[in-house]
Design a binder for these strands. Structure first.
Length: 697
DNA sequence: CAAGATGTAATTTTT
DNA sequence: TTACATCTTG
């Protein structure tokens, strides 16, 4: 197999390895995906392994899809290999054994929003939203550790009410015939433990189990691996303890650190040659992460030259930070692909200023990982109709859609329906009908009629047609069409997109359930691998597994990175933040630029900030200060230029023109007329008027 | 019952 | 600054 020749000795050793459990410690950019995919192809081609007997598990769909396409490129036969995320593997197994678990085969999956609704209904009105969120976090955490309500939860929280609330939540969830993300792992473990014959059958089928990004495994996922791994099986996990960044989600570095203890006889192979970054970038990143104690340690090296220095720019505020980045982008060679640059930040909200500044300057950008399709209100509405169609015990779906679009069914009417609640909501509705006012009754009858019609169509229609029908019958299409006219959001487009998304799924309940599952578990509607000439705006977490020619890490300030939050467990959190920064830095191939602000707006007022302590952990000589003035267009001292006739842009008023300028009380004042027809007077220094050319509208 | 108005609170990271 | 929750009005 010629791919083997292209590997370095350690990579080859990892591919050829068999027998004992294998832990591959793969540094950033060391070609770990290549090793896994080649290993799969090697097993199929050279060792004549049955593709069906191989299971490869990842954490994100992004990674799973990437792996799938690379594997099939090497061997068409290997298309039969099962490559899934942990969650989707659990979902698959649970669906096939739903009869053993007392859950419907067409169960739907709760996302966090849905789970919060379930919890709210379960716990009653007496809790505030924030409290409920806290409890939900604890419940999720418990599930990360495979702990049920009856288990000792003191490691999760010592709150006395947690056990009760957790139990109520779980009952309510099960009564609704739904599973949450945690269930997908926890109940799979449960299934394999309680049904030894299922476990043995699975062990018999998947003789080879490969796990990517193992450093992000949580306790439940570890336990799942334990169940999958029998005496006849081969287990290989790949990971990098320095890139473990999902502690908040229950990921535990100890999982990878202690893998050799948990699986006796484990052999370790280190991949330390980095193929991605220049020496400078690598050295800086390595020096920073070396401050961590919780690591096995490896020494990354690269054959690439020293390369460019690492740029450091300190800007006045986040607005200047964004313009600085914009100037860098505008400086790039004509024809160069903006898609080769990524702008990274710690918190999602930091993207906002980049969006505004870039839009104004007509710099194309795309937000990666944020606007999740399935989490939009209008999409959730549509999905709720479909979920309810599959399972009329689904309380979350029912409450969402019974009166959306409005059918005149208000709170009091709903309470009457709830009083009749039995197993299914259809029944409860029918039972409550005669107690309702004429108006509410008509509305509810209409709702029931809609669902009945759709139910009749369910076995006959393919999901795409069914979705179309649902949008019409439910009135959602009309509802969002009229809304869209006034609000000009793309909501109508989004729900129509639902029709397209449903194509390719087989007809009937199973097909529909499969469609809903993929939407829930595969939220990546923006494909970072797709070539687009637009700069990438992305959180540090979301960059895992990605790489870019040029990376700008923004917000290099104490409090942002490392992120501060009260009550945090100092040392552990700090090491996690350091790993996150390490991940961010090692995404860069050729050029790494760090930016921070002297002050930043917090809740509308400016706060002074100090630079990130991580900057001090980098070798002195590698950092090269960049002067904002050189790259950013001069704005401050341009006061003298804002004469009458100057085109300006104001945040509130939009584009306009200066019509008069004069001095008064030591300040320069201007009057401006805007396109809206309004005029306004500003103190030039404070007004944040941006210059634009007049034909630039 | 629903849309508008007004007041108050708050920003990690994601399958 | 904005998001969201509660109150008020049509």
């Amino acid at each position: 197999m010629q791919e083997l020749q292209r590997l370095n000795p350690e990579q080859r050793r990892a591919v050829l390895h068999e027998g004992a459990p294998l832990l591959i410690l793969a540094g950033a950019g060391s070609g770990k995906t290549r090793v896994i995919t080649t290993k799969i192809a090697y097993l199929v081609i050279e060792k004549s392994a049955d593709p069906m007997s191989i299971l490869a598990v990842t954490f994100t769909n992004k990674a799973a899809n990437e792996m799938k396409s690379r594997v099939t490129a090497m061997s068409a036969e290997a298309a039969g290999v099962m490559i899934r995320t942990f969650h989707s593997f659990g979902a698959w197994l649970l669906r096939r054994h739903s009869h053993l678990l007392g859950i419907p085969a067409t169960y739907t999956i709760c996302d966090q929003d849905d789970a919060l609704v379930v919890l709210k209904n379960a716990a009653g009105e007496r809790y505030e939203k924030q409290e409920l969120r806290r409890y939900l976090r604890w419940i999720e955490r418990a599930k990360d550790y495979c702990l049920g309500p009856e288990d000792d939860l003191t490691d999760v929280s010592t709150d006395r009410r947690l056990t009760d609330i957790y139990r109520l939540y779980q009952q309510r969830l099960e009564a609704s015939g739904k599973l949450d993300f945690g269930d997908l792992i926890m109940r799979t473990v449960d299934l394999l433990r309680r049904q030894p014959e299922v476990r043995d059958r699975i062990r018999g089928r998947f003789r080879v189990v490969l796990v990517d990004e193992y450093q992000d495994a949580n306790a439940a996922q570890f336990l799942l691996l334990k169940e999958l791994y029998g005496p006849e099986n081969y287990l290989c996990v790949v990971g990098d303890e320095d890139q473990s960044i999902y502690r908040f989600r229950g990921a535990d570095v100890q999982n990878i650190l202690r893998f050799p203890e948990a699986f006796p006889g484990t052999e370790i192979i280190r991949l330390e040659e980095n193929y991605r970054s220049t020496q400078n970038i690598l050295e800086a990143a390595t020096k920073v992460v070396a401050n961590n104690r919780e690591r096995l340690g490896k020494s990354l090296w690269s054959k690439r030259g020293a390369g460019l220095s690492i740029g450091l720019a300190v800007l006045a505020d986040e607005r200047e930070e964004a313009s600085f980045c914009a100037a860098l982008l505008e400086d790039t060679a004509p024809g160069a692909d903006l898609g080769n640059t990524a702008i990274l930040y710690r918190n999602n909200y930091q993207s906002r200023i980049f969006e505004t500044v870039f839009s104004r300057l007509h710099i194309p950008f795309r937000l990666i990982g944020t606007l999740r399709f399935a989490e939009r209100e209008e999409v959730k509405d549509g999905l709720a109709y479909l979920a309810f169609l599959l399972n009329d015990r689904d309380e979350v779906a029912f409450l969402r859609i019974v009166n959306k679009p409005s059918r005149g069914i208000g709170r009091s009417s709903l309470e009457k329906v709830c009083a009749h609640r039995t197993a299914g909501w259809t029944e409860a509705c029918r039972a409550a009908l005669q107690e309702l006012s004429a108006r509410s009754r008509r509305g509810l009858e209409e709702f029931l009629a809609i669902m009945e019609q759709l139910s009749a169509e369910l076995p006959r229609l393919r999901p795409a047609e069914l979705v179309r029908k649902m949008l019409e019958l439910s009135g959602l299409h009309a509802y969002y069409a009229s809304k869209d006219r006034t609000e000009e959001t793309g909501r109508l487009q989004n729900i129509e997109e639902l029709v397209n998304a449903a194509r390719e799924y087989p007809r009937g309940a199973e097909g529909l359930a499969g469609f809903l599952e993929s939407l829930r578990l595969d939220s990546s509607d923006e494909d970072p691998y797709e070539r687009v000439n637009a700069v990438n705006l992305i959180t540090m977490h979301n960059t895992k597994g990605l790489e870019f020619d040029r990376v700008i890490v923004t917000g290099m300030e104490d409090g942002l990175i490392p992120h501060y939050r009260e009550g945090m467990e100092e040392e552990l959190e700090l090491e996690e933040e350091r790993r996150l920064f390490y991940v961010a830095m090692t995404r860069a191939r050729d050029r790494l630029i760090l930016t921070g602000c002297r002050r930043r707006q917090v809740f509308g007022t400016y706060k002074f900030r100090s630079l990130s302590r991580f900057l001090g952990e980098m070798p002195e000589g590698l950092l090269e200060p960049m002067t904002p003035g050189a790259a950013a267009p001069a704005e401050e001292e341009a006061g003298s230029e804002y004469g009458a006739g100057t085109g300006v842009y104001h945040d509130r008023y939009g584009p306009g023109m200066i019509i008069r300028k004069w001095q008064e009380g030591g300040h320069t004042l201007v009057d401006a007329r805007f396109e809206s027809g309004k005029t306004a007077r500003f103190v030039l220094r404070y007004a944040n008027l941006e210059r634009i050319s007049l034909d630039d509208r």
